[in-house]
Design a protein around this nucleic acid. Structure first.
Lengths: 211, 211, 211, 211
DNA sequence: CGATAAGCGAGACGGTACGTCTAGTCTTCCG
DNA sequence: CGGAAGACTAGACGTACCGTCTCGCTTATCG
């Protein structure tokens, strides 16, 4: 296995940085649809060629950008599965809400639309490879909470037959469903109620077990 | 309360029909993104103004179209809440999958993307008023299954503290989450498992109560 | 030959007036090209049908309008052909300049373009019948100055072989040429010089003959 | 004085040629008003953007086109000013008549309208910058005959006080006036009479001076 | 050290849809 | 039948963006 010999002028890392910064700025300012590649190039002081050498499509660039800027949601395992899930989901909900606001000036709650998240979902639907990226992204992102659920089941905090995947779908799905489809609000109390109801039948005690 | 006096030439219902038919046809043939207003007009033998008088935007037209063509999913109330939900959700999943395939030639399972559904969600995110339409649509659509859950709780098949809304979010959310985000398959067995796990903690007996 | 029997509701003369007023207003405000029939109808509180029942075309309406609003240029016959022509042509030039300014906000002399006159000429070129109207209009309008020239020739103030038509073409033509084509200014001094030079070879004395 | 550094992809000269050819063809076929930018693009196998990058408006394109295709009218200086002018003006009249016929199928003399020329004049009236182009065009075009007149005056064939500009206005003006306004015919005899009458008072002898 | 390869900035290009505008016609109901 | 209202057909317009291409130039590594 030989080292991949690089010839010619190497790609400017500086360009990458400037592009992503410009793109980020522009996405925040304008939102997904009024985001224009021409303007990213102009702002980053970069040729469009340079953009397209890196990302074959506006959708690709934006997915990459979002993948980069979305914060790692940390998962704490305190042994209290109910609390851990609440904390985790609240963090996710907060992140989604921040995404939702990107590119629009929302003062009140008047606009309940899903914003960038919805556009990314559509982008994933348009290009199979973007879809792959998104799915990978979520697979990685969800690995931690899934492991958390697995450990809870192992120590008996969840009923043995419970599927972590399905359980997680119930939780995350509810959030995304509200965000993308019904537009219903996702407050702290909703998360609480959701977690409570989901855990109700899984053998989780109302008060945390001690390890 | 005076009758709303209509003046001028009334809108041609014929045009509405022809437009929606043409749009439907075109959506199925091409999918959301390669769907062109010009061609709808041409196929419907209608001027573009007539289109835009009715729907201010391609997105508006398409949402209206989908709202119209999506079939009523019927809800049966047999008294067996588990089975009723399974049947209902399976029907929903089938409908979603049909939507997903619209406008693309999917032979195998190679493409796991969400298709039209994702685009509609994005359209709803782009225009506040389209968002309203979509949310109304789902509110109406979900009224029946929510009532089903309410009745189940009343007759003791669900724990008294259970929220129908939250429960429904868990169920529908899981489906949409898989469709739009993770791309995981949504088969009959998945629905079965999902319903089982959701109902597990709600006091639903494994075998149906008789009324 | 029976009288033409009129049946049904007679045409509203009121409408004619209101339409022409609205059209005039709009023409002055906007100029020929941004003049829209819809808006005339709206301002005149008249149906478009009513407009088109009277004038088959925007061009027809506007030509009729201009024919109506353009002031009669009076022709005085003092016996001093040179002065009479100067006075007449100055009046024409003033009228043309007012037309030129219609529909634009000209503060300085920056814009030398021909405005409405040019558009009317184009309108006449587009529809044969509009052309006829325009030509008739000018035939009537030019009858008086032509008669003036005829009388001058008869009394010996112009050389016998001089053609009034050609002479008039030289005079009026110069004005329109400057207005429509070269954009050169048409001041009082220009008119003076023009008349002087045109009359130079026709036997007109520099000082007026007495009758 | 540094060389003007050219950056980016140069404009395709080929495109220019193809566009102008297509436009010419289309203008001849259809005339000014049924001339469509979309079709020019299609025929030239060029994107509409390419059109609009060069000419911001249909009017701009057409004026440029006409400026290009209108043939240089040559000016001979034989020493016989009367004949030289007749020849020149006859050529101009012929050119105008050809323009007048562009885009319409004129068999007889039924249609006396000015056609393309009128439309160009109107275009010049609509956009100040188009007006500039047209005026420049005529300034250049008229330089030669004006010089001819100047030389004639210098050698005494015209009275010393005669203004070449005014004289030329009389001649050219008469032609354009007939073409654009009165629609009167412009035959060889008319030109002859016009030139004769214009030169009558300027000291031009009926038979040419020898140099 | 020169050849070769690739990256880069600039900006034109093909393609394509969008939504707008205006003209002139048609349809309805009311006087 | 005239009129008001307003929908309708027709079709061009100019704009916006995407993603590609073509220049001339720069920056690397290879031979």
């Amino acid at each position: 296995m030989t080292a991949p010999v690089r010839r010619g002028r190497p790609r400017s890392e500086n360009a990458d940085v400037r592009i992503l910064e410009a793109a980020h700025e522009l996405l925040v300012e304008r939102g997904y649809d009024r985001f224009a590649m021409d303007e990213v190039a102009a702002r980053a002081a970069v040729a469009k060629t340079t953009l397209y050498r890196r990302w074959p499509t506006k959708d690709h660039l934006l997915v990459a950008l979002v993948a980069k800027i979305q914060d790692e949601v940390s998962v704490a395992d305190t042994g209290d599965i109910r609390r851990d899930l609440s904390v985790y989901l609240t963090a996710v909900a907060t992140g989604l809400d921040r995404m939702r606001r990107v590119g629009r000036d929302l003062t009140g709650e008047e606009d309940r639309s899903a914003g960038v998240v919805a556009e990314l979902v559509a982008a994933a639907a348009r290009h199979p490879d973007v879809g792959d990226v998104v799915r990978n992204l979520f697979a990685r992102r969800n690995a931690l909470p899934l492991a958390l659920l697995d450990r809870a089941r192992e120590r008996g905090a969840l009923a043995p037959g419970t599927s972590s995947e399905v359980l997680f779908d119930q939780l995350a799905g509810a959030l995304y469903y509200r965000l993308l489809v019904t537009g219903a609000p996702i407050g702290a109390d909703y998360v609480e109620e959701l977690v409570g109801q989901v855990l109700a039948g899984t053998g989780a005690t109302r008060h945390p077990e001690r390890t």
